[in-house]
Every structure is written in C-alpha cells, then in structure tokens.
Design a binder for these strands. Sequence first.
DNA 1: GGGGGACATTCTGTATACATTACCGCCCCT
DNA 2: AGGGGCGGTAATGTATACAGAATGTCCCCC
Lengths: 242, 242
Amino acid sequence: MSKQGRKAQFTRALIEARSLIIDGSLPAGERLTETALAERLDLSRTPVRQAMDRLVDEGLLERIDTGGCRVARFTMADLVDAIELRGVLEGTAARLAAERGAVPEIADRMEQVLDALDRAVDPARFDFRAYVRLNEEFHDLLARLAGSPIVAREVERASRLPAASPVAFLQGQELIPDFRVSLGRAQHQHRRIYEAVRDREGARAEALAREHARLARANLEYVMHEQPSLADRVPGLALVAG
Amino acid sequence: MSKQGRKAQFTRALIEARSLIIDGSLPAGERLTETALAERLDLSRTPVRQAMDRLVDEGLLERIDTGGCRVARFTMADLVDAIELRGVLEGTAARLAAERGAVPEIADRMEQVLDALDRAVDPARFDFRAYVRLNEEFHDLLARLAGSPIVAREVERASRLPAASPVAFLQGQELIPDFRVSLGRAQHQHRRIYEAVRDREGARAEALAREHARLARANLEYVMHEQPSLADRVPGLALVAG
DNA sequence: GGGGGACATTCTGTATACATTACCGCCCCT
DNA sequence: AGGGGCGGTAATGTATACAGAATGTCCCCC
C-alpha cells in the first residue's frame, strides 16, 4: 500500500476514473462495474466504490437501479443548464456580498487578484498561464465573498458540473482566433462585478455575474458549432451525445 | 443480513444516523467515528462508512482532516442562507420553465395539485396531512417543470440542506396560532408562481418563487424568537448553536 | 428454428482481517 | 512543575472473503 497520502488509493481511483470518463475513454452510456474498474485501475473494490459514489455525486456517473453505474450522457442542453446554474449561484454569492457587505479580507485579496489579472491580459505582457490561475482564484473568492459557507459550498459544487467550471473553456480558448479579446472582455466583467459588490448594488452584481457565465456558454456554442474539432480539448465535451 | 431491500444495511445506517443528528442525540460539534457509529447501530463499518460519506455530502457531518467526522454546527445565518439558496434555485427552475415553456405533463399534474391544495386549505374541509403531501409534490413538480434534469437535481439537493426543505416547518406550524392563515398565503403564492410560468413571465416567476421561500425564513425566525420551545419540533433546529 | 427454464457466472452488498496512522496519556527529564 | 518524547490503544484505509441477487447463456423441448 502506498506510503504517500492518507487516502492514496481512493484519490488515485477518483482522479483516474474521472479522467477516463472526461476524456472519453469510457464512452457515454457504457455500463461500468466496480469489479471491472477495480481491475482496470489495479485496486481493490473498496476505494473504487468510494470513487464511484463520488462520481455519481458529481454527475459523471448514473446509478443503475440494479447496481452498478452507467457513464452519464450529457446533451448540449445539459451543459447550457450547468453553466446557467453556475451563473445563478455566482450571482447569488455576488448579490449577498453586496447586500450584506463583503468579507474584508477576501475583498482585499480580490483587489490584488484583479490588478494581477489586468497585468495578465495586458497585450504588452500577456500571460496566459497567470490568467488561468488568477481567473480561478477570482471565482473562488467570489464564491466566498459573502461570508456564507453554505453559499460558497454550493457555488463550488455547481462549478464541478461538467463543463460548467469557469476554467473549462480556457484550454480550448487558446486556439480560438481572438481569444485575447475574449479574455479582456472577461476581465472587464470581473471588474464590474467587484465594483457592484463594493458599491452595494446587489441586483447589478447578480445580473453581471450571471451574464459573465454566459461567456462560457458562448464558448461552448462556438466550439460545438464552429470548431467541433476542438471538442476534445475541452474537458467533458467528449461526453456530449451527438 | 436482512432480506428486505438491496442496500438494507446502508439505508438503515443512513436513516438512523441522520435521525440521531437531526434530533440532537449527537450534539453538534461532537466527534463521530466509524467504529463508534457502527457499534451503536450494530452494523459493520462498510455501510456505516457509506452513510457517513453521504451525510458529509448532505452537510450534516464535516470531515476532519485526519479522518473521522464531526457533527456539523449550524448557525441561524446558515439556515437563513440554506433557505435563500432554495429560493434562488426554485426561482431559477420557475424562470426557466417560463422562458422555455413548461413540460406539459408536469404542468397538467401541477394544476391538479393546485386544485387539491385549494381544497386542503379550504376552512370548511381543512386537511393538514393532505396539505403537507401536496405541498411537497408541488415543490417537486416545480423543480422539474423546466424539463432540465440538471436544474431539478440541484433544486432537490438544495432542499436537503438542513431546515431548507419546503416541508421543514410544517410540523411546527401546527402549533403556531394562525398557521391556517399562513398556509392559505402559501397556497396563494403557489398559484401566482404557476400563473407566471404559464404566462411566460420569467422574471415574475423567479421573484415569486424566491419570495415564497421567505415564508420558511419567517417561520424559522418566528420559532427561534417567539417559540424557542418549538425548536425541537422542527427537524434540524437542534443543530443550531446558541 | 425459436422460446423458456435451469445452471453457471459475475457482480454487488456486507462483514471482517490487517497494516498503517493518528491520538492520548503517562512518565521522564530538565 | 512544565514540556516533550514515548508507548499503548484505537481508528482509519485498504484488501478480501462470502452470501445473495442479477444476468446471461446454453441446452432442451416444442
């Protein structure tokens, strides 16, 4: 048994199984048994079962009544809904932060992140990797800005739905013609969201955060309609039926 | 091993453990080990562990870094947020149903439920048990009205957060002076929500659904401030610190 | 040739064994 | 007397054994 990490086998099972599903090695709709997966990953059934439970929770697997699982089959509509939901929940986080006042330490950090994002999208010293990292931190901070663990938790959960994550399309975006323009637009929205929260404009903050999530939807639609060849660059898009 | 049910032990562990937490037998903050719970429920660790995983997911338990769990400690603010979230998500379900058109079969059933609810709150033939059952069905139908499995799933998840369920306060409500008036008000809102969905008034439907969840908040605040003695009649209120 | 039923296989759900790790209290040393 | 190390105990993580259920398969009978 591996010495590193307290739940090493479980973690490995979770990560590897998730990869298998997301990159399409396990085709959507395929039946998946504990035993088969355990053998494939060379693990015992115990950690594999836990990992499968977790993946069911994440929505990547569906339980079958009789036992065992099936790889979830997503439609475009499902991904659109997942993105919409993330927008709604981030919007709620933003609105509550505006109404109740933002947690000062998180707001401070957010200002730093926004400044850093400005630098990252500056054409003179464009830094894609920095953008990805900072964008992720922005969304994490936004989830926690209202100081509500319950809200933060659900925002983060919604971000784990397939292709709903704020970072899901950044990979593919590298290959989209004017993606730098798109990142600049996103950063503009980041600023406006924070501004609305700071100025206690709850409705505006909510609406802006929702609209911000629409960027992901636009990217989704672009990839699916204009560049289906990029679909395998975006995590989870292999799951989409048809 | 029990003959009845495919996951009888797991189910028993989940239900009994949840009861122990919700009714306060396991005080908030208390450390809870697999072994201890397994012994207490007279089960092996395997189903107990799965049940604990699930309860962590539901938010009733918190994982401890080192392994093991702690019974979650909720504040009033947490319950308020949980209710707010349910309102936001039901609002989203209602708005999307309005924007995209409601699923006809679900809308049909909803009209029947609304008629039945009218009868249940009619003072002449008031029927509390029927109200509880129909109210639950109304909220279930609302979650699915937009025809989005993703949205329905998250609405239902939010309803499982402690004391956030649409039915959480009905128990205690029996003991509140003019609770019949309150039920009538709730039913009035049910009607208006459905009406807005039917007439494709998305913003109105969303706002009404959010406001409807505020009834739960009002009940929460009433119980906590006016009738703390009722707190143990409402599932989950025993978890609230202070 | 097709359908149905008994059998075999496989899988799940549960219990339990085993090794590793964390926890707790005690004692010793300074 | 207080703090730090040390050992015992208990709990976790993982593997595996076993029984019951589900699935399918193969053969026989029609």
